[in-house]
C-alpha cells in the first residue's frame, strides 16, 4: 500500500518536473539580462518595444474578430444540423477535423494561389483584404475546437423541444437562436472562444506567409535576434495562454444559470 503510493507520487513528480523544470529554467534565464543579478530587464525591454505592443494589439483584434465570425458560423450550423439534418453530423465531424490534419502551410499556399493580387478575387492585394483572409484562415484553424465546444454545449440541452416551445409561442428562428439557444450554451461558446484566442495569439505560419504584423511572427523574429527577450516572451505568452484556459474554468463556475442543468 505504502509503496504503491510512493510510486504514484514519484510518477507524478517526474511528470510535473518534465513540464515545470524547462519552464523554470526559461524563467530563470529571462531574469539574467543584467550581469551578476536577477532583474526584470528583459521584460521591461519587451514591453518597451513598440513592435511588441502593436503586434500583440493586432493579434488581439484579429483574435476577437475570429471568435465572433467563428461563433456566427458554427452556432447556426451546429444548431440546424442537430435539429434538421442529424444525418449530416458524421460529415460535419469529418470536415471540422480537417484543419487538424491538413498543415496550415497547405492552407495558406492555397489561399495565396486562389486570392493573389492577379486573381479574380484579389484579397491579398490590400492590407484589409489580407486581414480578412487571415481571419478566415484562423476561423478554419479554430474550427475543430469551436465546433466541439458548441456541439457539447448543445448536447446538454434538448434543443429540439426548446425550439418547438419557443416556436409555438411565436418566436422566429433568429429569436430562438438569440434568446434561447445562445444563452444556454454561453459557457461552451466561451470555452471555444478562449481556445480560439490562444491559437490566434501564437500562430506563426499563416500570419508570416501572408506577411501580417501579428504576434506570432514577432515572437519568432525576436527569437532569432535576441538572447533574453525570447525567454521573457515565452513566459508572457505562457501566462496569456494559461490565463485564457483558466478563464474557461472560472466562467464555467460563475455562470451556472446560463448553462443548462439536467438535475
Amino acid at each position: 500500500m505504502k509503496t504503491n503510493r510512493f510510486w504514484a507520487w514519484l510518477t507524478f513528480a517526474l511528470g510535473a518536473a518534465y513540464f515545470i523544470v524547462p519552464l523554470l529554467a526559461t524563467f530563470e534565464f529571462s531574469l539574467r539580462m543584467r550581469r551578476g543579478t536577477y532583474s526584470f530587464d528583459a521584460y521591461a525591454s519587451v514591453f518597451a518595444d513598440p513592435y511588441f505592443v502593436s503586434s500583440f494589439g493586432y493579434s488581439v483584434v484579429i483574435g476577437l474578430v475570429t471568435i465572433v465570425v467563428g461563433v456566427l458560423v458554427v452556432v447556426p450550423a451546429v444548431y440546424f444540423v442537430r435539429l434538421r439534418m442529424p444525418w449530416l453530423r458524421p460529415f460535419m465531424e469529418f470536415i471540422t477535423l480537417l484543419p487538424l490534419v491538413i498543415p496550415a502551410l497547405v492552407l495558406v499556399y492555397g489561399y495565396i494561389r486562389l486570392y493573389n493580387s492577379s486573381s479574380i478575387i484579389p484579397f491579398t492585394g490590400s492590407a484589409l483584404g489580407t486581414d480578412i483572409l487571415l481571419t478566415g484562415a484562423y476561423v478554419t484553424l479554430a474550427l475543430p475546437y469551436m465546433y466541439r465546444a458548441v456541439d457539447n454545449g448543445m448536447r446538454t440541452i434538448d434543443i429540439g423541444t426548446l425550439t418547438e416551445a419557443a416556436q409555438i409561442m411565436g418566436a422566429n428562428q433568429a429569436q430562438i437562436i438569440g434568446r434561447i439557444i445562445l444563452p444556454n450554451i454561453l459557457v461552451a461558446i466561451l470555452s471555444g472562444a478562449f481556445l480560439t484566442f490562444a491559437i490566434v495569439i501564437g500562430e506563426f505560419t499563416i500570419a508570416s506567409l501572408l506577411n501580417r504584423p501579428a504576434f506570432g511572427p514577432y515572437l519568432v523574429g525576436i527569437g532569432t535576434n535576441r538572447a533574453y527577450e525570447p525567454a521573457a516572451l515565452a513566459i508572457i505568452s505562457f501566462i496569456i495562454t494559461w490565463g485564457a484556459m483558466g478563464m474557461i474554468n472560472v466562467l464555467g463556475r460563475f455562470a451556472p444559470r446560463t448553462s443548462a442543468r439536467t438535475d
Binding site: I157, A165, I168, G170, A260
Partner: peptide, 20 residues
C-alpha cells in the same frame, strides 16, 4: 401555417422550460 403563426399554446411531456 408555420407553428409561430398559429397562436396556439403547448405543454410538453418534458416541461421544456427555458433553463436560462
Amino acid at each position: 401555417l408555420k407553428p409561430n403563426q398559429r397562436q396556439l399554446g403547448m405543454v410538453f411531456q418534458a416541461y421544456a422550460l427555458f433553463p436560462n
